[in-house]
Computed example of a mutant assay.
Amino acid sequence: MMITTAALTRRFGTSVTAVADLSVDIPPGITGLIGANGAGKSTLIKMLLGLLPPSAGTAKVLGHDIRTEGVAIRERVGYMPEHDCLPPDMSATELVVHMARMSGLPRAAARERTADTLRHVGLYEERYRPIGGYSTGMKQRVKLAQALVHDPQLVFLDEPTNGLDPTGRDEMLGLIRRVGTEFGISVLVSSHLLGELERTCDHVVVIDGGKLLRSSSTAEITAKGAVLVVEVTERGEEVAGALRSQGLEATADGDVLHVGLVDDSTYDAVLAVVTSLDLGLVRLERPRHRMAELFATPAGGGA
């Protein structure tokens, strides 16, 4: 496992518990850390980096104890913080070279790695401009570059799509997927938006109020919601009956149907029935998961 925690807890004073008795195993690959704002995601990441001591419990990152081996963890882990922490007067090249040097790379190697990393995140042409003139999306790419420049085994990305428009979010999620698949670096990426990470991550950990709700593969979560929503122009119950006669689960509420999704053949069956009955198809889609649905689900597969 890349990360293991056992009864990990962090309290602030006597009244606030940010992370509560958290026990979870996180495998290699791309893992989404899901939770509403204030759920304890950033506190957990800072503890895993050895930057914030736990009040109770234990955790290991890449086999290193967070209480006693924080430096060893940070040598092997990249970190993209949530907040805007970039110096506006520096260029992307200056900042990323500086971070590479702090990680122990010689000057020549640091400059070479910086150029390669900025090219990978799409900032090569803008690398000498002051960061203060960058858009939000460009600043997020700089933060990603500095997390990657020392070739870590694992990166922690804290809300990397914050402040981005839909196109910028898609581009950032694509970069994250490349980090995990093409570069072979494991990723722990936090977000309050399940829909974003559902198509990016291999594994999902859901926390609320600092407590584990569930830890499971993304495929397991999506399989639990394997339903098609079908809306026809009329005769919804007749369509549902025709689909049930083919062995599919189908219920109708007026002209809106919910059909159990088996595989791609389910789409073909729906289209064939609608066509044979000479009806119009208004919509055919899979519903998106809502965070509330996961919060209402007991922790299954938790460590």
Rank of each mutant, 00 (worst) to 15 (best):
S217K: 02
A72C: 12
V61E: 06
A240Y: 15
R11T: 03
Y79I: 02
V71C: 03
F156V: 07
S217H: 10
R74M: 11
R283E: 14
A110L: 04
A7F: 07
R129Y: 07
S216Q: 09
V155D: 14
L261R: 02
I221H: 06
P81W: 10
H120F: 15
E69T: 14
T181C: 08
G300T: 14
H192G: 13
L62M: 08
L118T: 04
E249S: 14
V229H: 13
E285D: 15
G132R: 15
V97Y: 07
E231K: 11
V239A: 06
D253K: 03
R107A: 07
R74S: 08
R244K: 10
D84P: 09
S186Y: 03
G13L: 00
A109I: 00
P53G: 00
S265A: 14
V19L: 12
V24G: 01
I207F: 03
G260T: 02
G241W: 15
A6T: 13
A110M: 01
R67N: 10
G180R: 05
A100G: 10
V155M: 06
L257Q: 05
R111Q: 00
K60L: 00
D170K: 08
R107E: 02
T117P: 03
T58W: 01
T5H: 07
L95D: 05
T14R: 14
C201F: 01
A272P: 05
K211Y: 00
G50K: 09
S191E: 11
R169E: 02
A100W: 12
G29D: 00
L228R: 09
E220V: 09
T136Y: 12
D25A: 14
R127E: 09
P81L: 15
G122A: 07
N37Y: 04
M172N: 00
T117Q: 02
T93H: 08
V19P: 01
G13P: 10
T4S: 15
A6Q: 13
A252V: 07
Q146F: 12
L164D: 02
R107Y: 00
L22I: 01
L261W: 12
L197Y: 07
H98D: 04
V256D: 00
Y128R: 13
E220I: 05
A147M: 00
L193K: 08
H83Y: 12
A72G: 05
I207E: 00
K46Q: 13
T31L: 06
D253N: 04
Y124I: 13
S23K: 04
V227P: 05
G50R: 12
L33P: 01
T68L: 14
M102Y: 11
L86W: 10
I30W: 00
A92M: 06
G302A: 15
E126H: 11
F12C: 01
M2G: 03
R67G: 14
